[in-house]
Every structure is written in structure tokens, then in C-alpha cells.
Amino acid sequence: MSRSRNWARLPERGSPLALWLIRAIALYLGRPAARALLYPITLYFLITAAAARQGSRLYLRRVSGREPRWRELFHHIHCFAATVLDRVYFLTGRLDYFRIEIFGGQTILDQVASGRGCILLGSHLGSFDALRGVGSTLRPFPIKILMNVEHNRALTRLFEALNPELARAIIPIGRPETLLAVQESVARGCLIGALGDRVAQDDKTVCCRFFGQETRFPIGPILLAALMECPVILCFGLYRGGDRYDVHFEKLAERIALEPRRRQEQLGVWVQRYAERLEHYARLAPYNWFNFYDYWAEESS
């Protein structure tokens, strides 16, 4: 099985200071005033964050097939900044700020009604936090989030500061017994949130076609669903500008069956399907792509 040799390509999504600042601004000023500040902040990052700008440029070039304009780079980073700000409101329960439209909500309702859990597979496309709005709109459902705490220390602290209850729902990946707990939660009907588009160090991966070129995706979430014999439901929370979020659910697999001899190949088929849906939603909302690094670097170099 191939293991990624990709060392710590993950940039932390904001320094502790930046996250503290965003939180302070968000909570003291309220959303309208805080949003006005996003313009100078975006401009600052556009000028100073060269690596992120380059990541944005490479991605937008691939989506549109031409050189992106400055305006488009600005729009991309602004979209990211807006969702980081909104994360504070989602986590503190200020859902009154938002209009959230839910697509495929019946998939989640049926799953919750079945009493058995599933993997809720998301991505760094848009806002996974918009899920908070789904719980209060449809009906509350039990959820735990698998997170690589080592790579997200500042983010984890933000969770703890804003919503201790939610922070307790985070399951840190990494300890041997971690996934035993996940399996027991699934048996009790818990939905397990995981993001399937970033490769962390030592992740098992598979090569998939994504926007016309091969790149590596982690197989972890799909393999986990196969081992637990539970369904995989895809979840994409797209930011549509202003106060609008669209949350899409769709069933990827009722059950992932693996034969010992064809395991890697079969996992590859499912991860490829995930990559295709991710591409589909990325085309629906191109500026929601929040992996600001050369996503295809490894295979092309």
C-alpha cells in the first residue's frame, strides 16, 4: 500500500494571533461591520501571502484554463476570509445571520432515523461549519469530527474557546485506540465528520484524476467506512456570497465492500468517485476551494 512521502504540506489555517484577532473582531463588531473589514484584510493577504496567492493562481488557472486576473485572486481570498469569519458565528450559534439552503436533506434524515451512524465526508471546499445550521434547520443529529489535532492546534484552541461542547465532539486522529471509539459511536448512531481532500504525513493514499490531472487523495475515510461497514454520505457547504450558504448531501456508498486481493483497486474506485463529486461542486462554486497550495504538485514534479 502506498504511503505518502509528502512531508507536512499542510499549512495551518491561520496563526494563533490571526485567529484571536478574527474572533475578537467578529464578536465585538458583529457581522456587518466585521465584513467591511474583510476588504483591507483580503488586500493585505493578497499582497503579503505569496504562497497562498500562488496556490490560488494555480487552482484558478486549472479551473478556467487561463491566467486568473488580480480581481479573481482577490475574490478567492475574500471568499476564504468571509467563511473564516462566519465560522465564529456558526460555532457560537449565531445562525440568525444566515440563510442556509439544504439539498439532499432527506439523505441525512433517513440515516439518522435508521439509528446507525455513517461517515459524513466533507472537504476544504467551502465551509464544513455550515453543517451547524443544518442541525437546527432539519433536526439535531449527533456528530463527531475526526481531526488531525497536531496539524490544527490553533484551530482546536479556537473551537475550545468558542464552543466547548463542540470541542468535545472532536476526535483527535493518531492514537491507536482512536478509531475503536469511532466505531462504537457509529454503532450508537453517531455521524462521523471527516475531510477527505488533504493528505497528511504518512497517510495511505491513492492517485485520482481531479480537474484533468492525477493527484493523491487519502484513502483513510473510505477505508474506515469499509471496516465499519457503514454508509458514506458526502457533505459540501458552499458559500454563495452575502449571507447565503448551500449545504449539499449525497450518498456516496451504502456500503464499501472490499475483497482482500482487489482492495487497493476497489478503494481507488470509491476515492475517485469522491474526487469527481468534489470537482463537480468545485465547479459549482470555484472560489470555495480553500486548499491554498499546489494541489497537484506531487504527481507533476
Binding site: T178, L180, A181, D202, K204, L227
Partner: peptide, 30 residues
């Protein structure tokens, strides 16, 4: 160099082969 998914898979194989469950709340797990 095993990871947590390997641990789950191993735990499942152990329970299948030897007929008892490894549980996450077991203090002995580490």
C-alpha cells in the same frame, strides 16, 4: 509504523479470530 486505521483493522481481526472485543474505554489499550 502502524496507524490508527491499522489499529481498528487489527482489533476487528482479533475479535473475529479470538471472539472478544477490544474496547476504546479500556484503560489497558495503550
Amino acid at each position: 509504523g502502524l496507524d490508527s486505521i491499522d489499529a481498528l483493522e487489527l482489533a476487528l481481526a482479533v475479535s473475529k479470530t479470538y471472539g472478544f472485543q477490544l474496547r476504546s474505554d479500556d484503560k489497558e489499550n495503550r
